[in-house]
């Protein structure tokens, strides 16, 4: 699939960036899966708010 594969490629590259940043240590998997599952802005922000320490 042209479009789907582009979307997948972008998300996979995005995951690599997030996982390699110490800022997201411990929550990168949670964030990436929320993005992949299209949970939306509110859910992603909620993850940041609950796990910012």
């Amino acid at each position: 699939m042209g479009g789907k594969s582009i979307s997948d490629l972008i998300l996979s590259q995005f995951s690599k960036y997030v996982e390699s940043d110490e800022l997201f240590e411990g929550i990168s998997a949670l964030l990436v899966s929320a993005v992949r599952e299209k949970k939306g802005a509110t859910k992603i922000k909620e993850i940041l708010e609950k796990n910012h320490k």
Binding site: I6, I10, I44
Partner: peptide, 28 residues
């Protein structure tokens, strides 16, 4: 303090997404 960190994380998420998008789309 908490708000500053969340802001930093939110900016990083956007930067990483745009960077990934631009890099992949540039290939396309």
């Amino acid at each position: 303090k908490a708000s500053e960190k969340i802001k930093k994380m939110a900016q990083a998420l956007l930067d990483y997404f745009v960077k990934a998008r631009n890099s992949i789309l540039s290939d396309v």
